[in-house]
């Protein structure tokens, strides 16, 4: 099913363009140029996969729309801001936005952010209440802590699973060893390279054994970072 995106932007040249591009990326879009109409549309249907909203709207502030949507929904929200200062960004994020882009933004980047945000929150109807991440032939059940690769289930430790889950929910994004270590072990990295390497190597070996192929899922970047390969 094609994901439906709610776009709230008063400049029609921008909304039209974003909408065209997203259509070419197999998204459905509903475009509104005022907060009032968007809020009404949002209350009307429950199937939006994501909301993209410009903070500067003619009738009501984008912040108000954001607040309204957050009162009843956990749908991912990306804000668009034309301001250079950080106040808008942090205010938006504090009000519950998940991500932001600053004008002028790249459509390629925006699309990547949209996909990542949708992927992070997608719930599949067949298993209500279960978070799944699907990437290439990996199926990661975030709720049950299980992974299926080409139909088989490798037996991963908790840490290995968390590493895989983190990288898979941000495909293509580079993580430095420092950041990865801090996010998984929740403590600062002091060159604990062996610990990280060992876990990554074991994880790779288990995925390889399960898939029976030499597919590179996790790529090492110049020896200083890792990323999940997108395809």
């Amino acid at each position: 099913m094609r994901s439906r995106i709610l776009i709230i932007e008063d400049d029609q040249s921008v909304s039209g363009m974003v909408s065209d591009y997203l259509a070419s990326e197999e998204f459905q879009t509903d475009v509104f140029d005022s907060g009032e109409a968007a809020v009404r549309a949002f209350s009307g249907r429950q199937d939006y996969a994501l909301v993209l909203i410009d903070l500067m709207l003619p009738d009501m502030s984008g912040m108000d729309v954001l607040r309204y949507i957050r009162r009843s929904s956990t749908v991912p929200i990306i804000i668009i801001t034309a301001k250079d200062n950080d106040t808008d960004k942090s205010l938006g994020l504090n009000l519950g936005a998940d991500d932001y882009v600053v004008k002028p933004f790249s459509l390629i980047e925006l699309t990547a952010r949209i996909k990542a945000n949708i992927r992070r929150t997608t719930r599949y109807d067949s298993h209500p209440g279960e978070d799944m991440i699907r990437i290439r032939d990996l199926e990661i059940n975030v709720t049950k802590y299980t992974v299926r690769v080409s139909g088989r289930e490798p037996d991963l430790t908790r840490t290995e699973f968390e590493i895989l889950c983190l990288l898979a929910s941000h495909p293509g994004q580079a993580f430095s060893k420092e950041r990865l270590y801090e996010l998984i072990w929740k403590e600062p990295y002091f060159g604990n390279e062996n610990v990280l390497n060992t876990h990554i190597n074991r994880l790779r070996a288990k995925l390889k054994a399960a898939s029976g192929r030499d597919t590179v899922y996790i790529k090492t970047l110049w020896g200083i970072g890792y990323k999940m390969e997108e395809e």
């Binding site: 040249s13 921008v14 363009m17 974003v18 591009y21 002028p104 933004f105 790249s106 459509l107």
Partner: peptide, 9 residues
């Protein structure tokens, strides 16, 4: 910024 966004897009 706005026209540039459109140009870039």
């Amino acid at each position: 910024r706005t026209p540039l966004t459109v140009l870039k897009g």
